[in-house]
Design a protein around this nucleic acid. Structure first.
Lengths: 215, 215, 215, 215
DNA sequence: TCCTAAGCGAGACGGTACGTCTTGTCTTCCA
DNA sequence: TGGAAGACAAGACGTACCGTCTCGCTTAGGA
């Protein structure tokens, strides 16, 4: 692809993120993005069908890197329910600005998050969690519907993430992961008939007595 | 208030709900509502500031009744964490059409839920759950941020609710409440240092062996 | 029709005419018209399909009045070849501003006349001249194609009209009519085998010795 | 000049003419021409400032040849008013396709002729006729404005030409010239005080009794 | 024969006008 | 006199062309 093309796309994405942070997504006009990015109207539409497409394009990059991160955690890892969530919090922390733009609530319900993106993240996370949970539920002969459990785990994780973002990332990501682990794992473990508590959050043992100092 | 005024408001609300179910909220135009309700443009704006106001007006009725239901559960009830959620599921079941219109995902991320409403429900539920959780967390000297825990509990509940709606209300409401109880309570109890399992879901004992038949 | 509607249409027409005179038709933007008329974009398109439609609407009014004038000249009048042209010049003189806007060349070929309008006037005039000429040509057994003769008479008249307009209407209309009569009638009369000169231009005898004073 | 350059210009001109005939001038896009000629955008603009320039370039060639033809008719020829027009009709006949593209009306006023070109031809012809007419008008002490007479003669000729083109060149050019002579000359001669009829159309005596057979 | 400058195709780009759409206000009419 | 009808201003949207531009590729024509 042309170098110019990449540059234009990047500039547009950056302009959109800035504007979302400043005024919110819904309130941001294509013309605003154009002015900020100093790009012609036709150029924009040559690259993206509409504002949503630009948003999703930026987000897909993020998702791609997130998925890579999660895969890198190792497929051989033990089927720890919170595994993907640990990766998600770490990834969010490393991309604070983007996550803040995409998922932040920023005061009041008038400030609408880009809904599309939230749905996308939701589906991604649900897709990652389901393979972790489904076999255990089946093995334990649980009477709980798999999708319901997945939905609960997913929504809880995203709820925590959004809260964290709106709180200004004041917790270190490991602490968020641990928090999720402590809140979600017992119920899920109980549902699948396993032990109520996982032994330990992988890779976070060293933080056990030092939770607020590890930023 | 004039009888006609009430009638007009009701007709507009009904038209909006129908249209949300048919085409989604974002895709529904004020003009669509006008045509459906057979009402003049100026009349609409005489009653509601905008489309959101109409939506929220309908929702506030719902919230009012929901709050009444929950209050009726008794302010003297023991501080059962899942208490408000039981009421929510029951209320949703009794108002299936409206909940489906307001919170259903209806296939694909393109179909955007009315965000405002979801935020409103979120805030309502969080407000109801916080007083249940905050004292226990404080008493147990938990190091988990109260708002984070509340957020998790709230998001999990709404996630489950949305899944239930999109699933077509195929579970009876008591079963949903129990499901939430089993998934959320252990983690939260653990977080506050209490017993991992609540004794029993209040008012649903009679359904214990009969979960799939009580629709 | 609503009084406001008539007002809006009138204002738009006036704005267009002003702008044509100032900058030419092609160079005039719909937005220019909107700004000048202080009318919203959607309002414009509610009334006219596009800029051409607004132009033609204004012109059709003119045509209507012109046709009325010509009819008023009397259907019982002798089949004087130049009859409609006399009316045209008189009409143009009474509507100088509009004719200048619609048909003026205004310096250089870069200034394009609204072509549609010229074509419309052409067709109108040709339609009026043909019934005057066709029977005579047929009666005289002329070998000249009727439409060719009509075309010549029409183009000559419009050419004279445009020249007159660009010359700033410095001739009185009766003089223009007489001029057309003197230039066109001999050839046409010869073609139809009649007398080379018509006896006199109807209604202009009194100007014979006073041609430059009757403005 | 490079051979390739000439080739490119020629191909572009041909493509434009084809497209004008197919869809009209205004409806033809630079991109259309590019696609038809298989030429790059930048190449086009390296040769012509815009679509008009390409059109006029092609037309200037035509004018050059027309002027050469007319000059070849001999500067010593008697000051026959119709002289240049004879040449014009002959030239148009020899370049039927081009004239059809440039001046044809092709059904309905929606099909706009390239205005610029018509203006150019108009000015050229007027410039050729004026020297023929001005001295005679002056000598005869006519009170008719020279430019008005020139305009009449020019417009009549072009009107006849356009009619002929739209009629499919069904008349032989000599017949068109004679037709113009018979229609225009009497009025003009009368205006200048000369004999009402010119003796004979130069060089067309042999067609007098054979008007429809000389194609 | 090479090499250098021009011609050229491809197409990204900024800009501008278009015609469509929706919103919220305002005026007019009518019951 | 107050609700219904709908005209209206405002302005964002996505499309269509325009004329400029930056690339490389090719293709002479002079060294």
């Amino acid at each position: 692809m042309d170098r110019r093309v990449r540059r234009t796309r990047r500039i547009l994405g950056e302009a959109l993120v800035e504007l979302i942070i400043e005024q919110g997504y819904e309130a941001t006009t294509v013309q605003d993005v154009l002015d900020r990015a100093d790009v012609g109207r036709s150029t924009f539409y040559a690259h993206f069908r509409d504002k949503d497409a630009l948003l999703m394009a930026g987000f897909e990059d993020l998702v791609e890197r997130l998925r890579a991160d999660l895969d890198a955690l190792g497929p051989g890892a033990p089927p720890e329910p919170g595994q993907p969530v640990v990766g998600l919090f770490a990834h969010a922390y490393r991309n604070r600005t983007l996550y803040a733009a995409l998922f932040g609530r920023r005061g009041g319900p008038a400030f609408r998050r880009p809904f599309l993106v939230e749905g996308r993240l939701h589906d991604l996370l649900a897709g990652l969690l389901r393979p972790h949970l489904a076999p255990h539920l089946a093995a334990a002969g649980s009477d709980l519907p798999v999708d319901g459990v997945v939905e609960f785990a997913t929504s809880g994780a995203i709820g925590l993430l959004v809260w964290w973002i709106d709180d200004g990332f004041r917790q270190p990501p490991q602490r968020m992961a641990l928090m999720y682990q402590r809140l979600a794992a017992p119920g899920i473990s109980a549902a699948v008939g396993g032990p109520p508590f996982p032994s330990e959050l992988p890779g976070s043992a060293q933080h056990a007595g030092n939770r607020l100092a590890d930023r």
